[in-house]
Design a protein around this nucleic acid. Structure first.
Length: 369
RNA sequence: GGCGACGUAGCCAAGGGGUAAGGCAUGGGACUGCAAAUCCCUGAUCCCCGGUUCAAAUCCGGGCGUCGCCUCCA
């Protein structure tokens, strides 16, 4: 539900470790057979020295890691960095039958086993937080590539953290909260905008103040789209056409460049300003089509920050629209008679009811919330 | 201690050799009965110090600062 509110598309598969135990065990077994792993009293460890490229993702080499090691938990492992593929069962803990006795998977193997089961030995993109680069993703690469002999993931996208007061948000620090809680204060598109307004690799400090600013900023874009929807073609002007093309190109370029969403959003704002000016002067049919298409493609479909149907149009639209028509008519009469107290009172009361009424040069407009 | 990322206007944030996108805020103006929306104008030499270069915020070296990883859990 929360994902939906943020406009996140549902995943096709949500694999569970407990349902993929056969694949996991087969993978561990094969790694042992290939000489990349060894058993030790019911545990199975991956031999990091057996994978020459170990450290290629995080840019470390084994000797650096060794000399810099902070903790020496070393027991009988061949190398302190060898990590567990399979762990002997602990009393009371969940466990499964395996060639090495009762036990459970180590903490990296399940990701490899399940991703390769559903997507094959090589897939395009592997995501995750920056904190997972080492050791988690490094280990995934080692075990997967030793298992298949092929490249694991082609691209790694590591996102920066959401921080709170500049500190990593985490369970252990207790400074975390849920999307659900944020959604009580800000609509989904605003949260999306907040997340997209900085590059995904950068850390992002969470604050209500920032969200509130973003809500205002996003309203500009949404406004432009709403006006564009209501606009009626006028004239033959075409000056916006070139900018529409340029904007499209620049946004595509930005997105192709490692998903530079912040730049893409900036282009939308620049374009939005031009549209607003053009709207005031009256846009031709051609301009309207092009402008709508750009916003529809990028702001609505790709970035998902602008809503195609403004809330006002979405719910109870027919009845509300008729009532609003009536109210506006009355108020317009009052205004023409310079009955300002009444005109203001209508506007104020509507505001209390959650409806914003604006007198624009093109006539009164209203919107919910 | 080792490895890595980052440090751009009051705040958020792109860019990454040729004199700095965008947003919020501020101040001024246009429009308006007022308000809102919208438009115009308004602000930085890019943490510090050296170096390379015709030219550096952008490259190199050294500082300082912030954050992350290097242990269990995922």
């Amino acid at each position: 539900k929360d994902a939906l509110a943020l406009g996140v598309k549902p995943a096709d598969i949500h694999p569970r470790v407990s349902e993929n135990m056969d694949e996991i065990i087969l993978m561990v077994k094969t790694l042992v057979e290939k000489g990349h792993a060894y058993e030790l009293e019911g545990d199975v460890y991956f031999d990091v020295r057996s994978f020459g490229e170990y450290g290629k993702l995080s840019g470390r080499d084994l000797d650096d890691l060794k000399s810099g090691a902070r903790v020496q938990v070393d027991e009988k492992k061949k190398d302190p960095l060898d990590f567990a593929l399979w762990k002997k069962a602990k009393p009371g803990g969940p466990s499964w039958e395996s060639p090495w006795g009762q036990g459970r998977p180590g903490w990296h193997i399940e990701c490899s086993a399940m991703s390769m089961k559903y997507m094959g030995p090589t897939f395009d993109i592997h995501g995750g937080g920056f904190d997972l680069i080492f050791p988690h993703h490094e280990n995934e690469i080692a075990q997967s590539e030793c298992y298949t002999g092929e490249m694991f993931a082609k691209y790694w996208l590591h996102n920066g953290f959401i921080t709170v007061n500049e500190e990593k948000m985490s369970k252990s620090l207790g400074n975390f909260f849920l999307v659900r809680e944020v959604l009580e204060k800000f609509p989904g598109p605003v949260i999306r905008f907040f997340l997209l307004s900085t590059h995904y690799r950068s850390p992002l400090d969470f604050s209500d103040t920032k969200l509130a600013e973003d809500a205002k900023a996003l309203a500009r874009l949404q406004n432009t789209w709403n006006r564009l929807q209501e606009a009626v073609p006028a004239g033959e002007e075409e000056s916006l056409a070139q900018m529409a093309r340029d904007t499209r190109n620049r946004i595509e370029e930005a997105m192709d460049d490692d998903f530079n969403t912040a730049l893409a959003v900036a282009e939308l704002f620049a374009f939005s300003r031009e549209i607003n000016s053009a709207l005031t002067r009256g846009m031709s049919e051609k301009e309207l089509l092009l402008a709508r298409k750009v916003l529809k493609d990028f702001a609505i479909d790709i970035l998902g920050i602008v809503q195609e149907d403004s809330p006002a149009l979405a719910e109870d639209s027919a009845l509300t629209a008729r009532l609003m028509e009536l109210i506006i008519e009355i108020r317009t009469t009052a205004r023409s008679e310079k009955n300002w107290p009444l005109a203001d009172r209508i506007r104020d009361r509507l505001k209390e009811a959650g409806i914003l009424l604006e007198d624009t040069p093109e006539g009164p407009r209203w919107k919910v919330q």
